[in-house]
């Protein structure tokens, strides 16, 4: 019994990290039709920048801010300088993001060397909580709370604000939105920066759980893809459900069949593609 609850909570924590990662990817992909393959590299870069911030004596919360902002600026520059030039060529855009992913990954290896490094967690979140006979680390619960708050905030932004209405209009029908006078050229950098910032801050947040290591980007990117394919493109709810499903499967799989844990992660994707190629909550074929 304890085993199932503890692993369930671990799955919830991992799923929360995946949601933070996948929400940014899904937001960008949904609006701009850009599959940002540098998203995993953004996540890793955020984690490394956060690590350096902590090494230089800043506290964890400032590190999250710095990690998020750095990647946000980088994403904005990439969108403005490169992706915009390739507007309307989705394939060229995706290849450019892949090239940038390699540049960032190799740059991180260069700057921070190849050793995995743990990212220290803030002192106020160290230790464990006890309910009855259960012991659970505080930090993982904190990550779950962050993800739930983030989901709420994004929901408010997308469903209850004017900007959100514009973004949704752009996701649904870009041309019609333009005709109605929505300046999608202003929305693009905004959404791209927001999605990148989520990746960067998410990386710092993941640091204490996953630690920071060189192949973090190629470990996390496929997971973001799987979550998005599973949940449906551009759907926030889909990303949330998809991330939780993957989080649970990973956590139980890791404990029950460690050799195959990584592989069974992809089974739900295979299943969904076979039965419902639009994803659980998607309306359009990816």
């Amino acid at each position: 019994m304890n085993f199932w609850v503890i692993q369930g909570l671990n799955g919830l924590a991992f799923g929360s990290l995946l949601f933070i990662l996948a929400a940014g990817f899904s937001l960008i992909f949904g609006l701009m039709r850009v599959a940002n393959l540098a998203h995993g590299a953004f996540f890793m870069l955020g984690a490394y920048v956060g690590l350096s911030a902590i090494d230089n004596g800043m506290n964890f919360w400032v590190a999250i801010l710095i990690g998020g902002l750095t990647v946000c600026v980088l994403g904005g520059v990439m969108e403005g300088l490169i992706l915009r030039r390739l507007a309307g060529q989705p394939l060229a855009q995706v290849l450019v993001t892949l090239g940038i992913a390699f540049i960032i990954a190799d740059g991180c290896l260069w700057l921070w060397s190849g050793d995995p490094r743990p990212l220290p967690m803030p002192s106020e979140l160290q230790g464990v909580l006890r309910f009855g006979g259960l012991i659970f680390p505080k930090y993982r619960l904190f990550v779950v709370v962050v993800a739930v708050c983030l989901a709420g905030a994004l929901w408010l932004l997308l469903e209850r604000s004017r900007v959100g209405a514009m973004i949704r209009a752009g996701v649904d029908d870009m041309e019609m939105a333009r005709v109605m006078g929505i300046r999608t050229s202003l929305l693009f950098p905004l959404v791209f920066c927001l999605g990148s910032a989520l990746a960067g801050a998410g990386g710092v947040l993941a640091g204490p759980i996953l630690s920071v290591y060189p192949s973090m980007d190629t470990d996390m990117l496929p997971m973001a893809l799987v979550v998005v394919i599973l949940g449906g493109v551009g759907s926030l709810g889909g990303a949330f459900v998809g991330a939780l499903v993957i989080g649970f499967i990973y956590s139980y799989g890791q404990a029950l069949v460690p050799d195959l844990a990584y592989v069974i992660l992809f089974l739900p994707m295979v299943l969904v593609l076979t039965i419902r190629p639009t994803g659980l909550f998607g309306r359009r074929l990816v």
Partner: peptide, 9 residues
């Protein structure tokens, strides 16, 4: 792009 993402995964 969906094809690309699935082959990658």
């Amino acid at each position: 792009l969906g094809f690309l993402m699935i082959t990658l995964a």
